[in-house]
Design a protein around this nucleic acid. Structure first.
Lengths: 190, 190
DNA sequence: ACCTGAACACCGTTCAAGT
DNA sequence: ACCTGAACACCGTTCAAGT
């Protein structure tokens, strides 16, 4: 149901290769991180080297195809949480979701941090959408006096990805702890 | 004055190669990060490939030679700060120093997180010393009621390295902001 | 005791040739 | 329109041969 669909009609064999590549990439990235060898992914998909590059000219394009939809869903989820009774809790709940999303593959935090800055990155639009909803959540928290006035959307974005990164290094709980402490640091002192 | 000295006596040519390799590695890592090609470093040092491996069997050994002394100095600096009039500020000052130290080369945060867990890592002892002083600083803060009871040394260690990581990605100030928010999250709510 | 440089296995990326 | 597989340039690591 959430097989990412290519943008346009494709020949049947092309479509099959496209989907095999995505499937192999998904399991390989999940197991070995987003830096896993593209050559090996092509091999596992039973496809020549150049075929992979034909469909995904860069590793980031492959990541976009794998994660783009989910990132847009994450942005939508954040927009929903603007209705949360507690501005602070709404932000915190979303941040935890975003972090576990960034922990899908090892190395994603780095990819997300770069993509949001690099306008040519395939993931740029999706990351911008996420940053934008972060902005809304932070603004609401500030307006309600629940979040410190000097907290910005890039702060939240960086915290989420840094916590995901820490989870990849040490242990997953370490990432969650870091996120929790950081979020508490965002709080207006009482 | 802080040229790291090899452990034992060496032949004159060996010593020269050793020092050239260290010097080239230092400038290359500073400019391009700690993942820079070892082959290219050997080339710049005017030395054959295998010579580098003779002196530094692994990239981590090279990092240890470059950073070990400074890491031990960092640990000593933390011990001094146990005398700081404010337990919280002492911890915070040290954390900022530690973070700027972890920002010496791009990629160091990752190396430090791995080294502290992997007992076979050349940097393990140095990282343990740093973790140990983090433990002392946190314990003092907790005892004084300035730091939350559930904060641990690994939390502080992870925060420092994650903030350094965030500074490598986005911008350096972003790393400092993250550290500041995280440290505030460590604070006992007033 | 130390250095050299070739050897091996691997990777990303491109591109002419095929169908 | 798409696929193939070779080609190129690069890297980490090891090791026999030299001095």
């Amino acid at each position: 149901m959430d097989t990412p669909a290519p943008r346009r009609r494709m020949r049947a064999d092309a479509r099959r290769n496209y989907e095999r590549l995505l499937a192999e990439a998904a399991t390989a990235f999940a197991e070995h991180g987003a830096d896993f060898s593209l050559e090996e992914i092509a091999r596992r998909a039973g496809v020549a080297n150049g075929t992979l590059y034909g469909h995904f000219p860069t590793r980031r394009a492959l990541l976009e195809a794998l994660l783009g939809d989910r990132m847009r869903a994450l942005a939508a989820n954040g927009a929903d949480l603007l209705d949360h009774p507690s501005p602070f809790d709404g932000l915190a709940v979303w941040a935890r979701t975003a972090m576990s999303h960034a922990a899908t593959y090892r190395g994603l935090g780095t990819a997300f941090m770069q993509a949001v800055q690099d306008e040519t990155a395939e993931l740029h639009t999706a990351c911008q959408a996420v940053l934008s909803v972060a902005e809304d959540l932070v603004a609401r928290g500030r307006a309600a006096g629940a979040v410190r006035q000097d907290v910005t959307a890039p702060d939240l974005y960086a915290l989420i990805n840094a916590a995901a990164w820490a989870g990849e290094q040490g242990s997953a709980p370490q990432g969650e702890r870091l996120l929790a402490f950081g979020l508490d640091g965002f709080r207006t002192p009482s």
